[in-house]
Design a protein around this nucleic acid. Structure first.
Length: 579
DNA sequence: GCCGTTTTCGGCCCGACTGTTTTCAGTCG
């Protein structure tokens, strides 16, 4: 059973306890444990075998015992008994906006409702408004919530879709005369790979004016709630958006609050309490009632005795402790990237010529560009035969002469790791290349042991320099391969093979959690766009966001290295000589 | 149920908005 599945058990326990009416902090304890298990860098089974479950934050004696039972027996007696008491299907009611545990319990106990369909029927029949504490408006909202849920169905969307929408709304906000500053917050600012809703923040002295304009934006389909400080809307495409408006004097604390994550904010507020301060979006309040206004986030953190913590780290994954101890990483930045090592041309399945890719790289200010077209067996991608690969080398040499010293061109290939773990070109051909990416595009569904061995074989091949998009996942479309990631990362560290963080917002592969584990194990990384078109070079920022979420520092990223260091590393590997 | 630059027991984040209320509960972020 993997981390995700174990985490889900505890999440469901927390939800069931809420509906049951359990009061207090046990619920949060289960939620925190679930989040901790989900974002653990290692597999829960490994930690369990090694007796290290208690090292996970939020996992104490009781939850460790429950994990042990789950992994030994595949079941949990406590959970089974709980779901006998409270029907599990009630959990789907919680997905409806404006329905929480209290209302779900009310519908169940008073009307015997246990499914979404039953809830909808009751609402249409006017049964809900007869219940205590509800009226016609609540009933109408719940019906709208059910319809919105059915329309949406997709849940969270890719950050690649969310970012352009947020940019559009921010531009519109910045054009308003009453707006002094407008910024993204929430999971978007933390560069999470998927986004549940857009969180936007504005600094203004005239909040009503901003809110009024926002409600009228053409992107807005429906206003869910709107006050002086906060407006919540549903956009035309079903996505929800929040807008907060605060004065510039407390913009910093408001931005900190709106950025989250929830877990980070809770930890930060507890730290504030321990120092006799109460933290909210309005600022820091001392015991005597005096409020310290914070115009910048730096002021929020420094008043708590902390350095500013980059948004990508704010996931309650140990960043506050690290900040207290002065151990925050010096995160890689977009400007640290000096070149691209994974790019395609129309020699295989790219949509631009070599010349066009080279010129785009010059435009982007790269110091180097590796062309890495697909290898021969990948027919769907027009993979290069050995003859075509050698012809391409001549073409690249010609282009190198044209551009001279302005850009270093590397001739590489994205070589298929075949189903048995061998590579798609013979060794003598690989030896001719400047850089070799090894990737898996086929037989992704091999059983765990088999596909892990396949990668281990590739890692041990002397000519392999980088492993491309390790898991093969496409977010929301294709699950990652069933892989023993820990073994692969350890082998990569040992073989001195780098791992790609693929910047395509549908891949982001390695993901943040695996990137962080790779850093802990001493692996090298490469942040690459896998560009199939000149426009794709702009995707670097997504990979950098993921890398930063993985606590990645520039010195461990191949394409942050200066040209000479990169060349020296490549030439020292795989028995290549410097010819 | 977890956890300790206050603590192994007694704490555990904070506020906005809405609807159905005569002063607040529920939901959300």
């Amino acid at each position: 059973m993997d981390n995700q599945e174990v985490a889900e058990v505890f999440e469901r326990i927390a939800d069931l306890l809420q509906i049951k009416g359990e009061q207090g902090y046990r619920i949060r304890a289960y939620q925190r444990a679930a989040e901790s298990i989900r974002s653990a860098g290692q597999e829960i089974e490994t930690l369990w075998r090694e007796g290290k479950l208690r090292q996970l934050p939020g996992v104490g004696e009781a939850i460790a015992k429950k994990i042990d039972e789950i992994l030994r027996t595949g079941e949990l007696e406590y959970y089974r008994r709980l779901s006998e008491e409270v029907p599990e299907s009630l959990l789907e009611l919680l997905q409806v906006s404006d329905v929480g545990p209290k209302k779900a319990a009310l519908f169940w106990r008073e009307l015997g409702i246990t499914t979404l369909d039953e809830l909808e029927r009751a609402a249409r029949a006017g049964e809900l408004q007869k219940l205590p504490g509800l009226g016609p408006k609540s009933e109408q909202k719940i019906l709208q919530g059910i319809e919105a849920l059915r329309r949406r169905r997709t849940g969270r969307i890719s950050i690649g879709q969310a970012l352009p929408m947020a940019v559009q709304l921010l531009e519109r906000l910045r054009a308003l005369p009453a707006v002094l500053q407008a910024e993204a917050a929430g999971s978007l600012r933390r560069w999470r790979e998927t986004i549940g809703d857009l969180d936007l923040l504005v600094a203004s002295e005239r909040p009503e004016e901003v809110m009024e304009a926002f409600r009228q934006f053409p992107e807005v389909a429906r206003v869910r709630a709107s006050g002086e400080a906060k407006t919540s809307v549903v956009l035309q495409d079903g996505l929800e958006a929040q807008l907060w408006v605060h004065r510039p004097q407390n913009f910093g604390s408001a931005w900190q609050y709106a950025t989250g994550s929830k877990g980070h904010n809770i930890q930060l507020r507890e730290l504030a309490l321990s120092r006799g301060l109460s933290l909210s979006e309005h600022g820091l309040r001392k015991a005597n009632g005096q409020v310290i206004l914070c115009a910048t986030e730096q002021e929020v953190y420094s008043n708590l005795g902390l350095p500013w913590i980059p948004p990508e780290l704010r996931e309650d994954r140990g960043e506050i402790r690290a900040a207290l101890q002065g151990r925050l990483p010096k995160l890689v930045e977009l400007d640290d990237l000096r070149g691209e090592l994974h790019a395609h041309s129309d020699w295989s399945d790219g949509r631009a010529t070599l010349e066009e890719m080279v010129h785009a790289a010059l435009e982007a200010g790269f110091e180097y560009l590796a062309i890495t077209d697909h290898s021969r067996s990948l027919g769907v991608a027009n993979g290069l035969s050995i003859e075509r690969l050698r012809a391409q080398r001549e073409e690249i040499k010609r282009l190198q002469e044209q551009v001279g010293d302005r850009l270093l061109l590397l001739h590489g290939a994205e070589v298929e790791v075949l189903a048995d773990g061998t590579l798609d070109y013979p060794d003598e051909v690989l030896a001719e290349l400047d850089i070799v990416f090894a990737s898996v595009h086929s037989s992704l569904r091999q059983p765990r042991e088999r596909i892990t061995e396949r990668y281990l074989r590739a890692l041990n091949h002397p000519h392999v320099d980088v492993i491309g998009h390790l898991s093969g996942r496409l977010i929301g479309k294709r699950d990652p391969a069933d892989l023993d990631v820990e073994r692969v990362l350890q082998a990569a560290a040992q073989c001195d093979v780098a791992l790609e963080i693929n910047c395509d917002p549908l891949r982001l592969d390695l993901n943040d959690v695996h990137a962080r584990r790779a850093m802990e194990l001493g692996c090298l990384l490469a942040i690459c766009t896998d560009a199939h078109h000149p426009d794709h070079f702009a995707l670097h920022r997504y990979g950098v966001g993921t890398a930063r979420r993985g606590w990645v520092e520039a010195e461990r990223v191949l394409n942050c290295w200066p040209r000479a260091k990169l060349q020296a590393w490549l030439q020292a590997r795989g028995g290549r000589n410097s010819s």
